[in-house]
Design a binder for these strands. Sequence first.
DNA 1: GCCAACGTTGGC
DNA 2: GCCAACGTTGGC
Length: 156
Amino acid sequence: MKYWLFKSEPDVFSFADLKARGKTGEPWSGVRNYLARNYMRDEMSVGDLGFFYHSSCPEPGIAGILKVSSKPYPDPTQFEVGGEYFDEKATAEHPRWMLVDVQFHKAIPRLLALDEIRSAKGLEDMLILRKGNRLSITPVAEEEFRTVCRLAGVQS
DNA sequence: GCCAACGTTGGC
DNA sequence: GCCAACGTTGGC
């Protein structure tokens, strides 16, 4: 089992939105970065857990816990002609972008704010804190996962 | 709105 | 294959 951090702008799609999807979950579509794609395509397994991180908003931080709920499959938005995520070089035979579905796993009692993450002992190496880090999906070490859960008051 | 970081693009 | 220019991200 691996652990991850998924970034999303809550104005666009928030942890509450994911929770509202219930067991249906949500395709993590629109990722157009190769490293983030590779994480989904090559390294994720059904049942992996991840933090849902709110970015570009008044209160950036970890808002909840999600679960990877599907195997990787082609991101359908790459085929939507005229759509925001259309990729003219992608074909059904050779899709360029792969994604997984995620679903709500567990609420956390309160948002763990970015500045708390930054000042917490044991979280110094989290990739989200790296200056200029723009990856929308980053791996999280098991120790880091447990530390965040403890700080956020989650039984893990 | 600013600015630093950094991935991508495209000319050579 | 190099590298400058450009666009995007994201915290502040």
